[in-house]
Design a protein around this nucleic acid. Structure first.
Lengths: 121, 121
DNA sequence: TCCTCATTTCGCCATATGACGAAGTATAGC
DNA sequence: GCTATACTTCGTCATATGGCGAAATGAGGA
């Protein structure tokens, strides 16, 4: 039950759900999610930590960047139904469609530039 | 998206999830859910209002009692997948098994007695 | 009509949550 | 080593949440 509630609590925030939607297609580094959600890096970091604790995302360090991704189906059979349900719900959401579009533009930019702009402000 | 978040927020509380689990088999009046969750009637009432606003339960007045139930599948195709997912998660929970057992005992009691005992304390 | 009583609403309190900026970590590159 | 930098952790704040008891609501029965 504790694990189930950890999952539902993790999903009970619009920004975290949007982050999961963004990770549906590809893994992303923190600065790309910051750019999408338009929140402070520290805030996004906390959100991602909550998702990771619930087992909904994994993270992998690559040099100075940390990439977040959805767990591999083989290793996370327990959260797969959850994500399947969530994405089915998201497919009906205009917000999700808008995020997908914006994400395409973000992915075209150099992550280095993204991070530096985020540091500046 | 607002509706999705209303659902995930509604599910982000253990007592509300337990209430949904209790309603899986049959509809219940408030005092029976109060008895199961061991919370004040006013607290349970608030929880049920949140579930109803999210469309996860319906209520029907019958004399002095108000019965809560899961929505009929025909009228609520949008929350059916949510409840299916939730119950799949619950099936693995010892808390849910314990609640099912305790609920059987509660159902054997006269609701009138339940309510009066709750008023007395 | 008046009383009883199952439930809800209201007012209050303690704690949880989400936001930020500042400071801390750890890694790439000089 | 030192610096720059991508990210996290910490401290703080405003608001949201979940709990209760008291009062309000509304339907049945005397």
């Amino acid at each position: 039950m504790d694990h189930l509630i950890a999952i539902t609590k993790a999903l009970a925030d619009e920004n975290r759900v949007r982050a999961l939607g963004a990770l549906r297609e590809q893994s992303l580094c923190v600065c790309q999610i910051v750019e999408l959600l338009e929140l402070a890096p520290s805030t996004v970091s906390k959100h991602l930590a909550i998702l990771r604790q619930a087992g909904l995302v994994t993270s992998r360090k690559e040099g100075r960047w940390i990439y977040f991704a959805l767990p591999e189906s083989e290793h996370a059979s327990d959260v797969t139904p959850t994500l399947t349900w969530l994405f089915a719900q998201l497919d009906a959401s205009p917000q999700y469609a808008a995020d997908r579009k914006r994400l395409q533009a973000i992915l075209k930019q150099d992550p280095v530039d993204l991070c530096q702009r985020q540091n500046r402000s």
